[in-house]
Design a protein around this nucleic acid. Sequence first.
DNA 1: CTGGGGAGGGGGCCC
DNA 2: AGGGCCCCCTCCCCA
Length: 439
Amino acid sequence: MEISSHQSHLLQQLNEQRRQDVFCDCSILVEGKIFKAHRNVLFASSGYFKMLLSQNSKEISQPTTATFQAFSPDTFTVILDFVYSGKLSLTGQNVIEVMSAASFLQMTDVISVCKTFIKSSLDISEKEKDRYFSLSDKDASSNGIERSFYSGSWQEGNRSPHAHLSPDQGTGVIGGKSWSKYNYHSASQRNAQQPLAKNEQKKESMKKSKHLKVSQPSEVVHYKSSKREARISDSSSHASQSGEQAQVDTEMDSSPAGYQYAQGADVTSRSFPDDLPRMRFKCPYCTHVVKRKADLKRHLRCHTGERPYPCQACGKRFSRLDHLSSHFRTIHQACKLICRKCKRHVTDVTGQVVQEGTRRYRLCNECLAEVGIDSLPMDLEEQHLMSPSEESKDSRWHLSEEENRSYVEIVEDGSADLVIQQVDDSDEEEEKEVKPNIR
DNA sequence: CTGGGGAGGGGGCCC
DNA sequence: AGGGCCCCCTCCCCA
């Protein structure tokens, strides 16, 4: 016969003992703050403590002390509260640090919940954007053009975005049902439903497979092929690891100088010399370590596949605003003062901008003559396309009815019609509608 | 088949 | 913290 309340009661009792410092045989020093705990509980909860305490098991009569500077006392409070209660108090502000700490402490359940939390957070932010575009879609649809791809992920399963618990509010409970109610879409799944210019679809479909792979944590070790990443991975001998847990374990085991499990070891000071920044943020998906939380947030997008910055002109989505800006300048604004044909430097006088579909580039007058284009279009409708940076300053991808219409028309117009325009480098660039107008 | 160029993408870091 | 720039790498296309 099993009494179901026994486990929770036992944990409750242990937590009470911890709070009252009863039978605590372990002290954890985090940035000067001392946490009392029970060796047994820590041993059972954390791979890190398991290693640490098993090394010191012979000295069981001595109280164990561990010192951490890799995370803040607040973060460790969240971790320790989880260990003694099963409840993980995640917020949008602390999730990165908690995940980083959990990775350090080898607490895979916590890592998983953090990942789920981040995913749900990304889903919500994506859905908020999607909802926005969906609202804009009504404008587009009213013009007779369907753009159902943005709202597709919602309709699936009749879920409302508001049915989701906000990551900033919720508390996940491992082993409970609090998280199971979420039915997440991976970023790659979302991508599959997003709009693409016709000429991009083939390319994107190839890249999607990459993203699908990335979105599977168990395969992340195999994801990177760049030399840069290889360099990072080399330091911890990850080549043969296949699973996420194995990866985490290896990080802890094979670091040459850091992560040593000695009594009272100041792990961070061994890992990072004094002249380096003390706080580092480790990616839970790979071995990458960054100095700033913002950089980790940015890096995480390469694992989640989140692409929050769509190009207004062609619909292609980017994970970073600067990449979108670069794309927009290069592809749609013809910012390079180089003749695309002969590669010579051109000016407003010596060259002109040529428009091919949504793509714009420059040709020198000689190459223009060679191609056989010698006149400017006469009856182009005006089209206003803000650069991504201007757009983000303004209304954060807000599409007015007018802009929305022109955007949709451009996306739909995949023809390779050539349109020549006068070079206009002013910030308030007035672009012309794409129309077949070349003889 | 191969080399060059364009475009995309990731990291570091400054403002 | 976010934006943006620079650098580097990879992939793809094309001659």
